[in-house]
Write a protein that binds this DNA or RNA. Structure first.
Lengths: 257, 257
DNA sequence: CAGTGGTCTAGACCACCGT
DNA sequence: CGGTGGTCTAGACCACTGG
């Protein structure tokens, strides 16, 4: 009755496990059978089992359990981030009154019942080509990059690097590797750089090894990359690159027609 | 001199090939050494070579070559799609004058020097939960879904499914499985449904097997999913779900501050 | 049709981690 | 400590495809 299209053994096994997980027979956080058990049950070699599990792992359905822990069904939690002006700005006003001394992202997490923390470092480097193009400066020009590894409930969640032309950032509080409570947008406004529009570019890809290591994800796991360029009436003044493991975030934009 | 961190053999090999590709020593479209050659060169088993190649494949750097073709370095071409109103609308006006009888997406491709075609089918189904929630109707209610597989230069490029409440679509030209030259937005406007705002949600994930098959991508390859809900002043009137293989598209939004 | 990648087996050793 | 997944080997057979 099952319309078997003569799948390879490992695809077949992957499909069965996928069905069991999405049907709820294997609930989130529950342990999977061990590789040896699956191999015996299905009369295949352990390598074949591993091919099937690798597929589910790439799809974000199961975890990779080292040691005695075993693999578990992935508990999937998606946090939402608002890209457009209207909605996020309206809520940002409220936030600043309620949560003092933390930036918008930390507050955004509290809204969703999570604790956000950040590890911030600041460097002065030569602008890589992609960043230079967006900032409309020559490649290799000095820029200040403020790198943030953001943690949710203590675990790495996303990378957020903001690049500023050196003439804007140097000597300002942007260089200070700590939270800017009122936000860097307000800070730059006080410095005379009023951002009037943004351009967001969104793409998906596999992380490079460095990104995978910092986010503690397997190297095949896809990430979403949002590149936001902020403009005054005069020129681009910052580029922010945010990288999330794909299943961990959803971007939302509200647009007029 | 190489700061080897005692990587597993296959990660080491993957890193070397990755470097050779990004450094241009293996240019796009060029053939990789065969698995047997790599195994012998590096004194590892063929399975180890395959683990390394699987990683590069997941990262979208190389193709999967069946038969005598061999693997090749992936030729990466990213097409851009505009999410926001301002820019895309201004250009849409011009398009309609120049390209007659084709919809905006087909024209969008011509702008970038490619030929876009679509395979369209229309179904009447019960609304799945996610779609029902966005359309603000009970789950299981009848909806019309207009499914499009879009091809660029003859190859599958993205999936674009638009869901309409049955009361709006039934009996209208939306049900006709062919191009709507003036676009469904203009068509709905003529029918009295003027869309005044959109809400976009963007996420990344691995495709399910059906999506992977339709797009002809390996099942681990990540996709970007854009879900656009269109609203009149009264209510949501359509939900469009577009799915791209992640490396094939970049979404762009222009936003006021 | 020869060579390629795709699939599969049956073993082995080890680092790691929970109990 | 004992069991788990991570890594690796050395084979084998086959489907597909380009020359």
């Amino acid at each position: 009755m099952t319309s078997e299209q003569e799948l390879p053994l490992y695809r077949d096994l992957a499909a069965e496990l996928r069905r069991a997980i999405t049907a709820g027979e294997l609930p989130p956080e529950s342990r999977l059978p061990t590789e040896a058990e699956l191999a015996e049950e299905h009369k295949v070699s352990r390598n074949t089992v591993r091919l099937a599990l690798a597929e589910l792992q790439a799809a974000g359905l199961i975890t990779t359990g080292r040691g005695r822990g075993g693999r578990r069904v992935q508990h999937r939690e998606v946090l939402e981030f608002h890209g457009s002006a209207s909605e996020s700005m309206a809520r940002a006003d409220e936030r600043l009154k309620v949560f003092d001394g933390v930036d918008a992202w930390v507050a955004d997490n509290r809204d969703q019942g999570h604790e956000g923390t950040q590890q911030i470092s600041v460097e002065i480097v030569e602008a890589p080509p992609g960043i230079a193009q967006l900032l409309e400066i020559p490649a290799g020009e000095r820029v200040v990059v403020r790198r943030r590894l953001r943690l949710v409930d203590g675990k790495p969640h996303n990378l957020n690097d903001t690049w500023y032309p050196a003439d804007i950032a140097e000597g300002s509080p942007i260089m200070h590797p700590a939270d800017v409570p009122q936000g860097t947008i307000a800070l730059m406004k006080d410095m005379g750089y009023v951002q009037v529009r943004y351009r967001d570019e969104i793409e998906g890809r596999a992380p490079d090894p460095g990104e995978a290591r910092r986010l503690r994800i397997p190297s095949g796991w896809p990430v979403i990359v949002q590149t936001r360029t902020g403009y005054t009436t005069e020129r681009p003044v910052k580029v922010t690159v945010t990288i999330w493991p794909a299943d961990r975030a959803r971007l939302i934009y509200e647009l007029p027609a």
